[in-house]
C-alpha cells in the first residue's frame, strides 16, 4: 500500500519553478531515495511533502488522503517528520530539551519517556551530553540529535534531507547504519542524498531528479548498474 504519493507536484520558490510536475510513490515500509545534482529540486520536494512549502500545483496523498497545503505542525501529528538539511537543531537548547521538543505533539508522557530512554541507548553520545547546549555538539553528534529528535514524534514516514552532508566518511557510514536500523524498525523512509552510491546501496528503490523533474526511477540495484546513473552520479 502507498503511504505517500504525489501527482504532478509543482513548487515555486520566489517565482522560480523549482519542482515541475513530480510523480513519486513510496510504499509502506520502503526505503526510497531521491538523488540528483545540486539544485535539482530535491530539498524543495521534501519541504513541500512535510508542509514547509505550499505546492503551487499538483497533489500530495498521504495514507490515501490529500495533505496538500496542510502546515507542518499538523503533519507531524499525522506521522510525517523531516530531518532538515543542515540538521536544524536548536543550538541554544540543551540536548535533552531538543529531544523533548521532538515529542511536542505527543500527549502520552510514559511513551515519550520510554522512547527517550530507547534513543539514548541507540545514541550513547547524546546521553552523555544531555545537559549540554546542542550548539556545542560536533557535526556528527548534531546529525544524530536531529534524527533522534525526529524519531521522538514516532513518525510513520521519515523524510531525511542530506543526512551525510559535511560529515567525515566514518560518520557517514555510521549515519547510514542508523538509517538502515530505523528502516528495520518499520519506519518508512524517503531519503534525499547527494551521496548517490551510499543512498542507493541502502535503499529499495530510487528516483533520479534533474532540473525539477524525475528523469529515471527503478529498483536501487538496477539504478546502481544503470550506465547513465553511473556516469552522472556515481563518478563512473
Amino acid at each position: 500500500m502507498n503511504i505517500l504519493q504525489t501527482r504532478g507536484l509543482e513548487v515555486a520558490y520566489g517565482g522560480i519553478r523549482a519542482v515541475k510536475g513530480v510523480d513519486l510513490t513510496v510504499r509502506r515500509g520502503e526505503l526510497v531515495c531521491l538523488i540528483g545534482a545540486n539544485g535539482a529540486g530535491k530539498t524543495t520536494t521534501l519541504k513541500s511533502l512535510c508542509g514547509m512549502l505550499a505546492p503551487s500545483g499538483g497533489e500530495i496523498l498521504y495514507e490515501g488522503s490529500p495533505i496538500t497545503g496542510i502546515p507542518s505542525y499538523e503533519l507531524v501529528r499525522r506521522g510525517i517528520s523531516l530531518v532538515p538539511e543542515g540538521r536544524g537543531i536548536f543550538g541554544r537548547l540543551t540536548v535533552e530539551e531538543n529531544i523533548k521538543i521532538g515529542a511536542y505533539a505527543r500527549r502520552d508522557g510514559a511513551g515519550v519517556r520510554a522512547d527517550q530512554d530507547r534513543l539514548y541507548d541507540l545514541f550513547p553520545r547524546l546521553s552523555e551530553r544531555r545537559s549540554q547546549q546542542a550548539g556545542t555538539l560536533s557535526g556528527g553528534e548534531q546529525q544524530m540529535l536531529a534524527i533522534a529528535r525526529a524519531l521522538m514524534s514516532r513518525p510513520r514516514l521519515l523524510l531525511l534531507d542530506e543526512p551525510s552532508m559535511g560529515l567525515a566518511p566514518m560518520l557517514v557510514q555510521k549515519i547510514f547504519e542508523i538509517i538502515r536500523r530505523i528502516a528495520e524498525d518499520g519506519v518508512t523512509l524517503l531519503l534525499v542524498e547527494q551521496n548517490a552510491k551510499l543512498a542507493l546501496q541502502a535503499s529499495h528503490r530510487g528516483y533520479v531528479m534533474e532540473s525539477g523533474k524525475i528523469i529515471l526511477t527503478d529498483s536501487a540495484a538496477a539504478l546502481l548498474k544503470d550506465p547513465k546513473v553511473q556516469h552522472a552520479y556515481l563518478g563512473g
Binding site: 512535510c50 507542518s72 501529528r77 536548536f90 541554544r92 521538543i101 514524534s153
Partner: peptide, 24 residues
C-alpha cells in the same frame, strides 16, 4: 515548561519549530 521550550524553539527557528509540531 513545555510552553517555555516551545517559545525558545520558536525564537531560534520558526520553520524548524513547526516541524516539531509547534503551531508558531
Amino acid at each position: 515548561t513545555r510552553l517555555g521550550r516551545a517559545m525558545r524553539a520558536t525564537a531560534q527557528a520558526q520553520d524548524i519549530a513547526g516541524l516539531m509540531g509547534i503551531n508558531t
